[in-house]
Design a protein around this nucleic acid. Structure first.
Lengths: 216, 216
DNA sequence: GTTTCAATCCCCGAATTCGGGGATTTTTTT
DNA sequence: AAAAAAATCCCCGAATTCGGGGATTGAAAC
């Protein structure tokens, strides 16, 4: 059976060493490389040809997330497992979007790392429980803003929608009057009605609401 | 210690029974209810008050995904663990977007179900490995189509971004001055600089541009 | 057949926004 | 040390927006 070749990026020497030792306890694992920084990561990986990369985030020179991006661009078949102490939303999602296939926290890993690597190799995406929850929550948020947005009905008349569209596009009342061939005062009337219906009191609020709730 | 109360929705009687039996082997678990369909799920759950719901997808009358939506609307604190044989993308993502906090496949569950339920209760999101991979891949896809509007750099200073954010949120200059604890005239100065940098001449255009190009 | 509503137009006065100056202080860059 | 940029504050005058009235017409709803 082909061994699973693994490369490590972590600026902490003792962590790298202890991971290397841990990997040695599994005979199907093979340490392909161990690096303290990611400045030459693509070249490093082209040379050592691993199946899987363990990537820390905080490193001198370039951070691990940017490295993930570069690696997946150059070598898309390599699976990358983030392995870090950070669990703030930004770093988690940036890592995933950059192309990581798993994200585990460093604290409770030791015994489980072997299991996580195997899971990754089998097509899974190992994540620490709190990370997995963040990911699902994020997906729900995304779908909520991306999806329907049809429950709002402010009962704008068609003319009012015309006017609102012009407002959103940045036209002044005077320009709207010209655009729609009506008088300035008519535009004013429509605008007043729109504000009333949308429960806003200014152009900026109207534009924000119109865009946020896809009224135009 | 408070027991973990669990309700089961599955149209297959023998599966419900064997899950119930499995749960009994853990003394911290308590079966709150067991139902063959979801037609009255919200009422059922209001009565039996579980912490966690195990939800099958294929059921007579209403499917499990729609039930998840209703349950999360009415009882948002209940955590729902999908437990099904389906792993097609649509059902997986629909379930998650409907509000499920975990998604496990029925085949290899028996021994692990107890572990998954505990993980869910502790704030994790248990997923079968293949499901977790699908979720991450989906997130990467979404970010890929959502992203590529970052080529714009109007070089707004951080204070200008503060002001722009306030503007987008519908605050008047006077309110912004108050919010940021600076004088009205300072707000004016920032606004002028913002307009110059964004190449706009009015609030509406600024809000539109800020939202469209995700500057805030 | 009256009422309701959308669409059009008008006036006044107050508040807000905008453009075009200028100035000082602090921080950052060079 | 000098230059550039960021952040703060001020004034004037003009343009625009806003709130609160009102009015007319025509079409749709009751």
């Amino acid at each position: 059976m082909m061994p699973i070749r693994i490369a490590i990026f972590d600026d902490n020497n003792s962590i790298r060493d202890s991971i290397a030792m841990l990997l040695q306890t599994e005979k199907e694992f093979e340490l392909a490389g161990s690096f303290a920084h990611v400045l030459d990561c693509v070249d490093d990986l082209k040379t050592c040809k691993p199946d899987i990369v363990l990537m820390d985030i905080e490193m001198p020179g370039m951070n691990g997330i940017e490295a993930v991006r570069l690696i997946k661009q150059a070598l898309p078949d390599i699976q990358i497992l983030m392995q870090t102490v950070f669990e703030d939303d930004d770093r988690v999602f940036d890592s995933i979007c950059a192309g990581a296939s798993g994200y585990i926290l460093k604290n409770q890993l030791n015994s489980r790392l072997i299991h996580f690597i195997k899971e990754l190799k089998l097509g899974g995406s190992p994540m620490s429980p709190s990370i997995a929850r963040k990911v699902l929550t994020k997906m729900q948020e995304i779908s909520a803003v991306l999806k329907p947005e049809a429950d709002n009905d402010y009962k704008l008349s068609s003319r009012e929608k015309d006017v609102l569209t012009c407002i959103v596009n940045g036209l002044s009342h005077k320009m709207i009057a010209d655009e729609l061939n009506i008088s300035y005062e008519t535009v004013r009337s429509h605008v007043k009605k729109i504000y009333e219906k949308l429960h806003v009191v200014s152009i900026s609020q109207a534009v924000f609401k119109a865009l946020k709730e896809k009224l135009v």
